[in-house]
Simulated scan of single mutants.
Amino acid sequence: MATQRIESTADVIDFLLEQHNRIRQLFAETTDAVTPQEREQKFFELRRLLAVHETAEEEIVHPRARRELDNGDAVVDARLHEEHEAKKALSELDEMDVSTPEFVAKLAALRDAVLNHAGHEESEEFKQLRTQLDQNELDRMRKVVEFAEKTAPTRPHPGVESAPANMFAGPFVAVLDRVKDAISKPQH
């Protein structure tokens, strides 16, 4: 099962908010999965969406917020720190057996951190970008974010949280990630 594409005519902010909602839903579906196979499938989808979503934000949204917001450097630096910590936790989870109690506990901790992070983005970054940018810019950014997601790594890479780092490492690790995904994709 491929990662669910979110199709709409929404601008970049609405698009990212829709993805935040899908991430919340996937955390719940992963936690509530009845069988290890179902949990593995849901986690595969969650991991993939988190990886491409964060890469696109790091390449497109955060640099724009850094330039446009009065306190852009502080806001973005805090989000990048949160993203780095989430990538480390997601990498650890990716190596674990999904049927263990430890996986479930670490998944719950990651969920709390990611949802807290999403709340900060929504209230501190997205809200201000919506007031600072006109509708045409927000619409154009949506297209660029979608393109960035199509070429983004599908696994977490802690330490690659800046736009230059993503641009440099991204294409190479994206190819490797997609090969790994094809080989290790959960069967259902």
Rank of each mutant, 00 (worst) to 15 (best):
E92L: 11
E54Q: 13
P36C: 11
T55Y: 14
A109K: 06
H62A: 12
E95V: 03
V76Y: 00
E40I: 00
I60D: 05
E102L: 07
K106E: 12
R64D: 06
R48V: 02
A56T: 05
V98L: 07
E102P: 00
V114R: 01
D77L: 09
V75D: 01
R64E: 14
N116D: 15
R47S: 15
G72A: 02
Q41G: 12
N116H: 14
A108C: 04
D70I: 10
T30F: 08
A89H: 01
E82H: 07
V75P: 01
T55R: 11
D112S: 15
A109Y: 03
H84F: 15
A105G: 07
E68Q: 13
E45Q: 06
R79N: 00
V114W: 03
Q37I: 00
A28P: 01
T31A: 13
Q41F: 09
V76L: 03
L46F: 07
P101C: 00
E38T: 00
D70P: 03
E83Y: 10
L50M: 12
L115W: 07
L110Y: 11
L115D: 10
K106V: 07
E102D: 05
K87H: 13
E45A: 15
A33M: 10
E54R: 07
T30G: 12
L49V: 11
L49T: 12
A56E: 05
E58K: 05
R39F: 08
R79G: 00
D73L: 03
A89G: 04
L50S: 03
K88F: 14
K87Y: 05
L50P: 02
A105F: 09
A65Y: 05
V75Q: 02
I60Y: 04
L110Q: 12
E95F: 08
A56C: 03
H117V: 14
H117T: 14
R48S: 14
S99R: 14
V76A: 05
A113K: 14
V75A: 08
A65S: 03
V61D: 08
I60W: 04
Q37D: 04
T31N: 13
L90S: 05
E82Y: 03
A109I: 02
K87N: 01
